[in-house]
Design a protein around this nucleic acid. Structure first.
Lengths: 196, 196, 196, 196
DNA sequence: CGTTAAGCGAGACGGTACGTCGCGTCTTGCG
DNA sequence: CGCAAGACGCGACGTACCGTCTCGCTTAACG
């Protein structure tokens, strides 16, 4: 997560104050209204210090966001693939549902088309690892015979995450349990999985 | 599409010059770098005139974008639901693939979380009509017995558009025909449609 | 005095507010502590407006200073060259003696070695005209026979202004009447003028 | 010249590197562009070390400048007061004519109005001693009858140095020999000295 | 077939935030 | 323990755009 040049002398307290201030402001004003000036003022930190360690506002929020998302959407294997997918997706839906994370993530996504480096970072740190984890869980289900051997697992994951992003981006957030359950069932069925 | 107060004296040439300049700049610099100042300068139009007719930069681009998207993604009914869905989705993928429309749309989407009015406009003018059209096409297939009567058509449409948005937002655009075909097949299968 | 690009639309009230604020701040804090930010805030004017019409802080103060100096140090011709020189120099001494003009002028002078354009402006607008006026007054005295025909009038003026600047720069300001009188007498005697 | 707290452990090599770097930068960029940061970087010295031994940028340059000026403008007594004054003033003119000393001195002078302590230091170390020396030389000439007993020697010195400063400050440097000669002659004549 | 009010270009204005620079203070670890 | 290295809070820099606001000018509709 460290986007900085290597340094042994970085002030951890400045780092924390910056990340916290950034998320607070994101909640209070919305991503678009957050400014580096305000983060610096709120955190009691100089702008120079922020620019020293992060290339942009989005990078600050990304760091805060990532720290948190990882722990909120675990990937467990209880043997029941449908249940595990529901658990995972429900975690993601819940994270996006609560400020400041939903708005913050929407804001970060919005920068991806203007900032190649950020896009690369987001994919490498946030998207790809979780995507791979999801594929991995499906593969283990496949090995246990719950899913046909020729199923397209990558596509399946995209079909799971896709509607979630679609709704988030268009600000029609998913309404938790019921929606998620139906989505998982449909995706599994599309793979030719045996009905439960 | 006209967001303006009614007027008989509005200059059509200024309108066109503004929209064209906005799209040009979006191609050249990317959405995030487009400014009202630059649009005005490029179009040879005064800032006042732009503010008179549009509430924001996004509204300008939305107008230009919408004009164009509608004609590019028609909804036909050939009797073959899989084929028609592929045709429609392929149109959408192609629009998003070419500058300036992909970047412009990404930019517009990015404003949705900061601008409630724009979000409402986008949903009403752009998203909902096409969503409804897609549901309608599925329903007619349902009536023809190609899809079971209890299928969740709304969810189906979200599963179709979802991956497309997911990929667009994350800047991993879909690679056209093959991807689209597999996606349509999976979604139809998830509805319990008879295999072709 | 107008250092601006030609414009018919310049706001006179902004101009005045800027100049007044600049002089006030110069009095309160001293030249070195005056900042463009503070001038703008005090004057209720945007920084952009200041930068639009003046190239630097010194230029702002120069304009205010010049407006004022010209009227304070008139050159009259009473027929008595010694008396007229005393009148003129005393005016200059007095201007430099009162805040904010003394400190402001010292500040402007201090920029002259870092800012070629300002140096040129100061010489053209402030120094040379008054120098020439002084030479002119001496010449008319020369024509009236009060000064020998071969006297070096340029040098004379430098000998008059020199000590004044010397003292001002080194912050040992002249103590008015007596000092000025002696200086004038010595300079006239150095020219070979008849004693009074 | 040492403005430091007493210390036996001060590094002479740091001192030299600092002074040299300061003068170099003054030549390259002009006084106004010299910064402590740059001096430290150029000298390979930490900022802390500079702040430990000097109170300000001007103090650094003053130390470098003074070291050098003293030796360049000697006061000799050959018995001919006009000649000795010319020698002395010509030395001063020459010092001011060559970078980095002219610009450096102008820079130092410019700080005098913002920095009372520096002003005091400059007067005590640089100005007053040379002023007194000049008065002393005139007095010895007076005792030898070359100058009338009631001549105002202080004023005379100001008339000598004044034009030199006037010209330096306004960046119209004196052109050496001829100018200096005429100035000295006029000042002596103004004192009522016998013509040579 | 003028008159007159609008839309228009130009761009100045008060603002906010930008990203950078240098200040002077401070801490860390090397020699 | 003095030093280099350099992070830190601070605050000003000069720039870019924002959205609002006159200005004259053109220009089409109505009287």
């Amino acid at each position: 997560m460290n986007t900085s040049p290597s340094s042994l002398r970085r002030s951890e307290s400045s780092r924390r104050a910056t990340l916290d201030a950034a998320l607070d402001l994101c909640t209070e004003r919305g991503y678009g209204r957050v400014t580096i000036e305000a983060i610096a003022a709120r955190a009691g930190v100089s702008k120079k210090t922020i620019y020293r360690w992060w290339p942009s506002k989005s990078a600050v929020l990304l760091e805060a966001f990532t720290e948190m998302l990882v722990s909120a959407t675990p990937f467990v294997d209880t043997g029941d693939i449908a249940k595990d997918l529901r658990t995972h997706l429900t975690g993601a839906v819940n994270v996006l549902a609560v400020p400041p994370f939903g708005p913050a993530y929407a804001g970060i996504l919005s920068e991806l088309h203007h900032d190649d480096q950020l896009a690369e970072t987001v994919r490498r740190q946030l998207i790809d690892p979780r995507f791979d984890e999801a594929v991995g869980r499906l593969r283990s289900a496949q090995e246990q015979g719950q899913i046909p051997p020729d199923a397209d697992l990558d596509l399946a994951v995209e079909m799971l995450y896709g509607p979630l992003y679609y709704r988030h981006v268009l600000r029609k957030p998913m309404q938790d349990a019921q929606d998620v359950g139906k989505l998982v069932d449909h995706v599994l069925r599309s793979l030719g999985a045996a009905e439960r």
